[in-house]
Computed example of a mutant assay.
Amino acid sequence: MKSLKNRLLSSLILLGLTAAGTAHATNWTGYTYSSVSTTAAVKGMERIADRVEKETDDDLSITLHLGKTLQIASSDITQATGDGIVDFAADLYSSGNVPIARILSLPLLINDDEEWNKAYAVMMPYLKEGFAQQGVTYLGSYRYPQQVIFTSFEVDSLDDLSGHKIRVTSPEQGAFVEAFGGSPITLSGSEVPTALERGVIDGALTASAGGAKNWHEFLPYNYRLPVNYTFSAIIANTSSHEDLDPATRNTLDKIVDEETRQITRDFIADEKVQKQSQAQAGMTIVEADPADIRRAQEAMVPWWHEWAKKAGPDHEKVLAEVLEALGK
């Protein structure tokens, strides 16, 4: 009888421990701007969710929702995360809420991986501070390949942009298009194919592994002048992040750091694959003339400073630090 009582007591203790463990488990709502599950970005976010659940022994689980499956506009992801509507997100369109982030996407400012790394090292603390002001913790970011020029018309020089309507994703890209006589048009990705088909736009700034992966049939020409980079921040609601067990929080942060690096590598690899595939499908691809690149940069240098001056002293200060790091 005593043995049975001991066994029952042991079972109750075990059940209590199990229940306590279950009660402690945290379930997060995750969100990404991308609605295409096959992209390197979404695959990476899915890996983060899978690894977090496994490596925290189910202490933290993240249910990832693709773009447009929640009533959150892409431009509102920062705010939705800060408000706790979602706990974790990939945020490509954060610059409206964290304007300092736009420095990393200024046209012709950053021209290769080495320059990106130097500029990003300068920007990291300012990104963290900017997101913190929104009630958001900045965990890291992944980067898309360089945004280049895809068109429905023949193009092998910057002069060919004149008089044409080009889809852009930011005011900064728009300034570049205007500098060479084009008209920038802002559209969501889902609107681009119809706009190209109807002649609403004549081209787009994107990457082979980005928009051109889906729109290439409408864009038979590609002039590979590197306009700028775009990047997506990985963010968490600050209260949710701070409420995690320290070991769980450290595991999440480590996984995000590793996977964002991998997403960037995957995009770089896919850029080569898609570029080759598009060429084989008949796209005319022209590598940019170095003189054209220098000309574009010379046109943009005064604009960088005008942009920072209008944005305020903080932007001027940070831009100066980035330029110093880049030796420009």
Score class of each variant (00 low, 15 high):
Lys118His: 03
Gly203Cys: 08
Gly30Ala: 10
Glu178Pro: 04
Pro171Thr: 01
Phe218Arg: 07
Glu298Gly: 01
Gly96His: 04
Val286Gly: 05
Asp314Pro: 03
Gln280Lys: 15
Glu129Lys: 14
Leu92Gln: 04
Ser61Met: 06
Leu127Asn: 04
Val122Ile: 15
Ser35Ile: 09
Trp303Leu: 11
Gly312Lys: 12
Thr39Glu: 08
Gln280Asp: 15
Glu178Asn: 12
Ser152Trp: 02
Ala25His: 07
Lys275Val: 15
Ala212Trp: 03
Asn6Lys: 15
Asp314His: 12
Glu259Asp: 12
Ser162Thr: 13
Thr238Val: 14
Leu139Arg: 09
Arg198Glu: 15
Leu252Cys: 09
Tyr120Ser: 06
Gly203Lys: 07
Ala325Asp: 09
Ala195Ser: 14
His315Glu: 14
Leu4Arg: 07
Leu161Ser: 00
Met1Tyr: 06
Ser232Ala: 15
Gly44Thr: 10
Arg167Pro: 00
Asn228Cys: 12
Phe218Trp: 09
Ala233Thr: 09
Asp59Met: 06
Ala325Trp: 06
Leu60Val: 14
Met45Asp: 09
Glu217Leu: 06
Ile293Lys: 08
Thr78Pro: 07
Tyr229Glu: 04
Asp58Cys: 00
Ala291Ser: 13
Thr230Lys: 03
Ala20Cys: 14
Pro125Trp: 14
Ala209His: 03
Ala279Glu: 13
Leu127Lys: 04
Phe267Pro: 10
Asp160Tyr: 05
Leu127Glu: 11
Gln134Trp: 09
Ile77Lys: 00
Leu225Lys: 01
Ala25Met: 10
Ala325Gln: 13
Ala90Arg: 01
